[in-house]
Design a protein around this nucleic acid. Structure first.
Lengths: 226, 226
DNA sequence: TTCATACTTCGATGATAGTCGAAGCATTCG
DNA sequence: CGAATGCTTCGACTATCATCGAAGTATGAA
């Protein structure tokens, strides 16, 4: 019965621990160099190079040359969604790379999911938007209502600019720690960028965790109360 | 560094072509035996057994003992959801298992599905039987009506003998090329055996294709007109 | 030009695991 | 009780590939 999509190639790419570590590192959203990814995966530079070639050939990552550096990043949003989905499945079965450590609570509270906000804060934000009638869910798709457009604009996001992009404005992404959906898509990315630009939060180094300042957390919670 | 769920184990399980084929076969929703899965994956029974053990240890499938058979099925809805997600991603990138070749049209027209007739001819036969009120469908189950019993007996099949078997007489099987159901079970097997015994058709070697003779095809189509 | 940095490719090695033949259990049927 | 069927385990072979040392390529700086 040779019909239907071939999932084994994708699985094989993700199936190697070194490559899985690289992909997980890239879920942080930042483009990383081959050296950094080698460090994240715990292999030498040569080994990392071959892995990166395979990941690129498989369409999971893309590289951007810049001088003598080569920056690697996830190919597109789809890859981020796929990885987060698999992570949710793995977490659900207790397949963690390490036992919950000191960073784990911070990760569950707020972290970056490729380019948007995930964790408790991410889920809470989408919940609030849906409860207030600002976002209408339709299966896996989502759409901004007129009321929602006004609210987003009030936060200081240029919706018109976002709409010119080809990628979907609103999308839902299954959160591996909360097991519920949070907001992704162009809007999800813009919102996280807004929070960081306003100094409400900032990314932690070498981690997916996002640390909110005391003031930033107060404002965020006021904007999206439980 | 090492934080978050470990996606590599899941990837490794899905990454092997044989296992991916088995999982894809199980996506139909029916529980399948080890033999059927071996056929679907294109490996021997021993090899399939090893793969099934690993899939079960990884929590992707579950088995249900039933007499001397062991039926395997996806562990739960989560697995199905995950696979569907990955399939969507793979299909989006043009990663299909289809191998267009000279045998493909023949396979779509008529082929053996474990032990019964599948493909266009198989679907057509069940469609006719249902339309004529000879087979009553009830979800995935199926049953012969009195009128159907007479029709089958007229074809020259000993229904009494079939009924002594413990396996279900009628069953439906999802056809991958037609995306609709065809008849399996003891009756499905007996019908195919009848066609072959009567010289209407014969199996091709090293292939699932079934080749109808000109006369056999004429008779088959007369028996089950469109 | 010369050196340094960043990365890739080559080559060899070692380990994993996918594969199947053969034998071994377990269950059911006659 | 055999005999047959369905499946598992064992053992051995093989191929793949992950890995890293060493050498090669490319870009930028001095």
């Amino acid at each position: 019965m040779k019909e239907g999509p071939d999932i084994s190639q994708i699985g094989a790419l993700i199936g190697d621990p070194a490559r899985a570590n690289m992909l997980t590192a890239l879920m942080g959203g930042q483009a990383l160099t081959a050296s950094e990814l080698a460090g994240a995966a715990g292999v030498t530079l040569q080994t990392a190079s071959t892995h990166l070639s395979r990941l690129e050939a498989g369409g999971l990552i893309a590289q951007r040359k810049q001088g003598r550096h080569r920056y690697f990043a996830l190919a597109d949003d789809e890859v981020g969604l796929l990885l987060e989905n698999i992570m949710g499945f793995a977490a659900n079965r207790g397949l963690m790379r390490t036992r919950p450590g000191p960073k784990d609570p911070a990760l569950r509270k707020a972290r970056v999911c490729y380019n948007h906000l995930a964790g408790d804060f991410g889920v809470r934000m989408l919940d609030r938007l849906v409860a207030d009638g600002d976002v209408a869910l339709d299966g896996e798709e989502a759409a901004l209502t007129p009321a929602g457009e006004a609210r987003i604009a009030a936060i200081g996001i240029d919706l018109a600019a976002l709409k010119t992009q080809r990628r979907p404005l609103c999308r839902t992404c299954l959160d591996w720690s909360e097991r519920r959906s949070h907001l992704s898509g162009a809007l999800g990315e813009a919102l996280l960028a807004r929070f960081i630009a306003d100094g409400w939060a900032k990314r932690e180094k070498d981690s997916r965790a996002i640390r909110f300042t005391a003031e930033g957390e107060r404002r965020f919670l006021a904007l999206f109360p439980e």
